[in-house]
Simulated assay, not measured.
Amino acid sequence: MGSEKREPIKNPRIWIILGILLAMITPWYFPASFGEILVYGVPLWAVIIVLSSLLLSAYLSYVLKYHWMLEEDEEEAEQKGAK
């Protein structure tokens, strides 16, 4: 990603996706019928939560790698410029 990195708190798109993923791992809004539907013996709500947790982990890794401005990145850029 060649664009300038900035703190993710200033990017509303990151917060919207994070909110959606957090809502997906919260089981209180699932209908009661989700407990009756089984996927390989596991309730559907549990499958949704596990998959959403994996997506949340992957998304947070992406945000940290490509959107988070770390001081080490700035120091490396300064060192390359000085050489």
Rank of each mutant, 00 (worst) to 15 (best):
L44F: 04
L51F: 14
I20A: 10
E36A: 04
V39M: 03
P8C: 10
Y29S: 10
Y62P: 00
L55C: 14
L22C: 06
L54A: 14
Y62A: 02
E74D: 06
V50T: 10
L54S: 11
P27C: 03
L55S: 12
L54P: 03
S57R: 09
A46V: 15
I48V: 05
P31S: 05
I48W: 07
K80E: 15
L18V: 12
E74R: 12
Y40K: 06
G41E: 07
A77H: 09
I14W: 00
W45Y: 13
K10F: 15
I25T: 10
V47L: 00
K5L: 02
N11E: 11
V47G: 00
I16S: 09
A77Y: 11
W45A: 05
V63N: 01
R6T: 06
W45Q: 09
K80P: 13
K83V: 11
L22A: 03
V63M: 07
Y40V: 01
Y29R: 14
L60S: 15
Y40Q: 08
K65S: 05
R13V: 15
A23N: 06
F30C: 08
S57T: 15
I48P: 12
K5D: 03
S3F: 10
I48M: 09
A82Y: 00
L22H: 06
L22Q: 09
G35R: 15
P43D: 00
G19D: 11
E4H: 09
V42S: 01
L38Y: 15
I49C: 09
Q79R: 14
A23D: 02
S61V: 13
L22Y: 04
I37S: 04
I16T: 11
M69H: 00
G2Q: 11
V39E: 08
E75W: 02
A23Q: 08
A82N: 07
I16F: 15
S53I: 08
S33K: 10
E76P: 03
F30N: 12
I37E: 08
R6C: 00
K83S: 12
F34A: 04
A82S: 07
L21G: 03
P12D: 12
L56M: 05
L60C: 14
G41S: 06
Q79M: 14
A77M: 12
K10L: 14
S52W: 08
P43G: 02
M69R: 05
M69C: 02
K65Y: 00
W28V: 05
P31L: 04
E74N: 02
P8D: 10
S3R: 09
A32V: 04
D73C: 07
A58C: 05
S53Q: 06
I48C: 08
S52H: 12
G19T: 12
Y66F: 13
L51H: 11
A58Q: 14
I49H: 12
L22W: 06
P31H: 05
S57Q: 13
M24V: 10
W45C: 04
V47C: 00
W68V: 07
E7P: 10
E78W: 05
W68C: 02
T26H: 10
L18N: 11
L64K: 08
F34Q: 02
A82M: 05
L56K: 07
F30H: 08
L54G: 06
E76N: 14
E74V: 11
A32R: 01
F34H: 09
E36G: 04
N11H: 03
K65C: 03
S33L: 02
L55N: 13
D73W: 13
D73H: 14
V42R: 07
P31Q: 09
E36D: 11
E76R: 14
